[in-house]
Amino acid sequence: MSIIEIKNLEKIYNENTDIPVHAVNNVNLSFEKGEFAAIVGPSGCGKTTLLNLIGGLDSPTSGMISIDGVDINTLSQSKLTNFRMDNIGFVFQAYNLIPVLTAKENVEFIMHLQGASKKDRDKRAEELLQAVGIDDKANVRPGKLSGGQQQRVAVARALASKPKFILADEPTANLDSKSTETLLSIMERLNKEENITFIFSTHDQRVVNKAHRLIKLEDGKVIGDERVIK
């Protein structure tokens, strides 16, 4: 069963001007539970916009996005924020961790927003940091972690709320080869062992090589959607 259903999705910037920009153009897609999919294409093709729309960070000009049967465009701002918290995990290109909190506190933060008890938060944060191989840095602030380590904390944070899927916008763009390799292995393992759904936007060939599904985007249109048998 599809966890994400996208129908006739359009996003037009500067709609009422002489030069409207079709960032996403009539996109129809669906994602199943446990996918490891990459949205690929050149810079400016609309990858991030599509990911933002799927994540409910931006609203479409037209079309529909349904997550687990919920049309997210019909939700109010506050309901949408809560919906994101409970259903979607985000990994950003620039890691975007809270600099004043330690790695563990960063992971715990979203669980705190969800109202989890201190005991549950502690336990899950430790498990997740262990899963991404950074449990020895649990009490270190992001400023003292390398880019790769920060991105692993970001993955742990994205998983903390037990989301239905994780959206990762160019997660390896700021990482060196070794860190990229480590991060991708972790995400691949989580996908394989825990059946966690990952959707990336990327133009990094190393990510493309690991993806099980490649969605090619050009000028906001899906020009290819192929499944790679590993």
């Binding site: 960070l57 506050s78 924020t81 918290m85 985000f90 620039a94 933060f109 927003l113 969800q114 994205a158």
Partner: peptide, 16 residues
């Protein structure tokens, strides 16, 4: 701005 945007994105509502 980026950090606050991230907080809103991951589910920190505007009241918080």
């Amino acid at each position: 701005v980026r950090e606050i945007g991230m907080l809103i994105a991951i589910g920190m509502n505007r009241k918080r």
